[in-house]
Each structure stands twice: as structure tokens, then as C-alpha cells.
């Protein structure tokens, strides 16, 4: 069964200068255990799409199905990971991870901490359970934030430009790390990004959104063999795929 299915989803906002059309008939599909990226320029409505998926906003038209059922407000199968890690300084790393299990997963405090403790090794954080977020490096903070997202126990991870705030080297490092973890865990992931290389390196499939009002301009399979490593970046296919994605976005036509 398809995990997520969007059919003709449109959304506009009423502003001072009339209607602002943000999404115009978006259709996309995500299978269980699939890694799908949504690639688009800034301000193309990626965040609006997220708000629809997480139930913060409602679509004007079209259908959103999760596991074959209509997405209802207050009931949503997604665990959201924000760009800024949003780790709370008053909680330890363990406490922050447990928050996902406690609030979204509905576990009792104790069970939530036990669940978080189980998860930490997967994210290489077992030695930092009692550390405070400010004691961690940027990359470790993102790993902790991802652990909190997984701890929510939802079916789909919704990663919202998760590495966007990191420096380029740390970003590549974390992308390769995520690929490794994903090979093992096979979560269903929807990644929103404007980083073409990130989309190619991590995804099974990429949807390219155009500028506002956003439509799906291209759906591209990424046939690179897994597991993908640093060597994958030297594969000539990568350059071809990146080129195809960038071309779909009109990058290089100097319209901006």
C-alpha cells in the first residue's frame, strides 16, 4: 500500500494583495521504506507542503492520503524534523530524545526515557546521554534532533532541510552518515531540500517543484546503487543526474 499519496493538492493564502497561489495541483506518492526528496527553489511552497502534511494547514482542494486513509487534523503519521535542531537547553540529550516518545508517542515519562536510551547508540550518542545540547557540535545536535524525530514512533520521517544550517563539510559528513543509518533502518523518509547533491545522494526518487505557484516539474528516479558512499560522488551518473535536476529548475538561465 502506498504510504503517502497526494492527488491534485492546491493551496493558496489570502494576503493583502489578493490571493497568493502557493501549490497548484501537486501529486506525489511515497512507498513504504522509500526515501523521497522534494527539491525546489526557496519560497516555492515546500514549507506549505509540510504544513499540509503535518496537519497545521488544510488544503484547498485535492486529496492527501496516508496509508490509504484521508489525513485528518490532529491525526498525522509524520514525525517532523526542523532545520534548526530545536533541542531544548533545559533537557539533556536523552531528555530531548525522550520528548519525542513522550509527547508524540504518548509514552509515560519512564518508558519514553527507556525508548530514547535504546535509540541513542543508533545515532552515535550513547556517550552523550547526560550532556546538554550546548555541549554538542552542530553535527551531533542534528543527529540528536533526528533521534527525537525517530523516537516519535510515526511511520514517516519528514525532514525539513535538516542539514541546511550546517557548514559544507559537516553537511556532507552527515549526509553520508544518514545514508548508512537509512540502509539499516529503512525508514520511510520525505526530505525537503534545495541541495541538489543531497537529493541525488540520498533519494530513491526526487520530485522537482517549480517556483510559485508550485507544480511538479519533474519526477526523477535515482538509480545509483546502494549503499552509497563517498565513492558514489565520483560516479559519472551523479553529475548527469544533478544536471538533469538543475536543468528542470532552470538554474543557469540567469532569470533571477
Amino acid at each position: 500500500m502506498t504510504q503517502i499519496e497526494l492527488e491534485g493538492v492546491s493551496k493558496s493564502f489570502k494576503g493583502r494583495e489578493g490571493e497568493l497561489e502557493v501549490l497548484d495541483g501537486i501529486s506525489l506518492r511515497v512507498q513504504p521504506g522509500e526515501f523521497v526528496s522534494i527539491l525546489g527553489p526557496s519560497g516555492c511552497g515546500k514549507s506549505t507542503l509540510f504544513s499540509l502534511l503535518t496537519g497545521i494547514e488544510a488544503a484547498d482542494s485535492g486529496t492527501l492520503l496516508a496509508g490509504g486513509e484521508e489525513l485528518a487534523a490532529g491525526h498525522q503519521p509524520f514525525a517532523w524534523m526542523p532545520q534548526d535542531d530545536v533541542l531544548f537547553p533545559w533537557r539533556t540529550v536523552l531528555g530531548n530524545v525522550a520528548l519525542g516518545a513522550e509527547v508524540a508517542g504518548g509514552l509515560a515519562r519512564r518508558d519514553a526515557r527507556a525508548r530514547a536510551l535504546e535509540l541513542l547508540p543508533t545515532f552515535g550518542l550513547e556517550a552523550f546521554a547526560d550532556s546538554r545540547p550546548f555541549q554538542l557540535s552542530g553535527g551531533m545536535r542534528q543527529r540528536a534532533a533526528l533521534a527525537r524525530t525517530v523516537a516519535q514512533g510515526h511511520d514517516v520521517l519528514l525532514l525539513d532541510e535538516p542539514f541546511g544550517a550546517l557548514d559544507a563539510l559537516t553537511r556532507t559528513d552527515l549526509q553520508l552518515w544518514l545514508e548508512q543509518i537509512w540502509e539499516r533502518e529503512r525508514w520511510t523518509v520525505v526530505l525537503i531540500t534545495h541541495d541538489v547533491r543531497e537529493a541525488v545522494l540520498l533519494s530513491d526518487r526526487v520530485y522537482v517543484l517549480g517556483p510559485r505557484p508550485a507544480t511538479v516539474r519533474l519526477e526523477l528516479e535515482i538509480p545509483l546503487p546502494r549503499p552509497r558512499t563517498l565513492e558514489t560522488l565520483a560516479d559519472p551518473q551523479v553529475a548527469a543526474l544533478e544536471h538533469e535536476l538543475l536543468a528542470a529548475l532552470d538554474v543557469g538561465t540567469a532569470r533571477t
Binding site: Q76, F78, W80, D84, F88, G100, V103, Q152
Partner: peptide, 29 residues
């Protein structure tokens, strides 16, 4: 309290009181 923190709590399905207790109050200290 940052917007992202509020959105995070919202997407996790936390109600007003839970959000206040877990995020807004500690942020206010």
C-alpha cells in the same frame, strides 16, 4: 519561545497545557 519550538510541539500533537509546561515555562525562566 521560538516559532520552530511551537511548530515542533504542534506537529507532535501537544496541547496548549503540555506546550506551556514543557516549552513555554522553561523558555521563560
Amino acid at each position: 519561545t521560538t516559532r520552530a519550538a511551537m511548530t515542533l510541539m504542534e506537529t507532535m500533537g501537544a496541547g496548549w497545557w503540555k506546550t506551556w509546561r514543557l516549552v513555554r515555562l522553561p523558555s521563560a525562566l
